[in-house]
C-alpha cells in the first residue's frame, strides 16, 4: 500500500505491505538505520521510537496504523543538540553502542514524564532496554547528568 508518513518532521511517501513493522520501513525503505533490529519481539528496546511523542516499540507497530502520526527516530533527536546525547558522551556510556539509540529514546520519554527520576524510576523506565555490554551503571549516571542540564535550561528560560 502507498502511505504518507511524517518522520522527523518530514513527510515521506512509502509503498510497502500494510503489515510491515515500522522498524523495517525505517530501516529498509527510508534507510534510517539508527533504529536497531535485535530481538524482533519487543523485548530488548533496540528499536524504540516516539510516535506522537509516546515511546513505541517500532518492531511491533504495523506501518498501516501510522498515517497522520508524527514519528520521531534517533535521527530526529540529533538534528538539534540534546542534553541526553551530550550526557551519554560525557559519561562515556558507550561500548559497542548498538543499544544506545533505543536507550536514548526511552530516556527522553522518561524525562518528559518525570523530569527528576530516581534510580528506581530509571530502572523501571529502562527495564525493556537490554545492554549486553553492561553499561547500565553509566546509563544511570548519564540520566542524572542530563537532568541537571535540563533543570539548568529550565531555570534559564523560565520554563519550569
Amino acid at each position: 500500500m502507498k502511505l504518507n508518513l511524517t518522520v522527523n518532521g518530514e513527510s515521506v511517501a512509502v509503498d510497502v505491505e500494510a503489515d510491515t513493522p515500522l522498524l523495517w520501513v525505517l530501516r529498509d525503505n527510508l534507510h534510517l538505520n539508527g533504529t536497531k533490529y535485535s530481538c524482533g519481539a519487543g523485548i530488548c528496546g533496540a528499536c524504540m521510537v516516539h510516535i506522537d511523542g509516546e515511546l513505541s516499540v517500532s518492531r511491533q507497530i504495523p506501518v498501516s496504523s501510522l498515517a497522520g502520526k508524527a514519528i520521531t527516530t534517533i535521527e530526529g533527536v540529533v538534528k538539534n543538540p540534546h542534553p541526553v546525547i551530550d550526557a551519554f558522551i560525557a559519561e562515556q556510556v558507550t561500548q559497542c553502542g548498538y543499544c544506545q539509540p533505543g536507550m536514548i529514546m526511552s530516556i527522553i520519554s522518561l524525562l518528559r514524564k518525570n523530569p527528576e527520576p530516581s534510580d528506581a524510576d530509571i530502572d523501571q523506565a529502562l527495564a525493556r532496554n537490554l545492554c549486553r555490554c553492561g553499561a547500565y551503571q553509566r546509563v544511570r549516571r548519564a540520566v542524572h547528568a542530563a537532568v541537571m542540564v535540563l533543570e539548568g535550561n529550565a531555570l534559564l528560560t523560565g520554563d519550569c
Partner: peptide, 26 residues
C-alpha cells in the same frame, strides 16, 4: 574520552546490519 562515542550515541555508526548497497537484496 572514546573517539567513537558520539557517532554511536547518535545512531550514526555503521554496524554490519546498516550496510546498504545499490541494488542489494535482503
Amino acid at each position: 574520552a572514546r573517539l567513537d562515542a558520539a557517532i554511536k550515541v547518535k545512531g550514526e555508526a555503521l554496524f554490519g546490519l546498516d550496510v546498504v548497497l545499490p541494488g542489494m537484496l535482503i
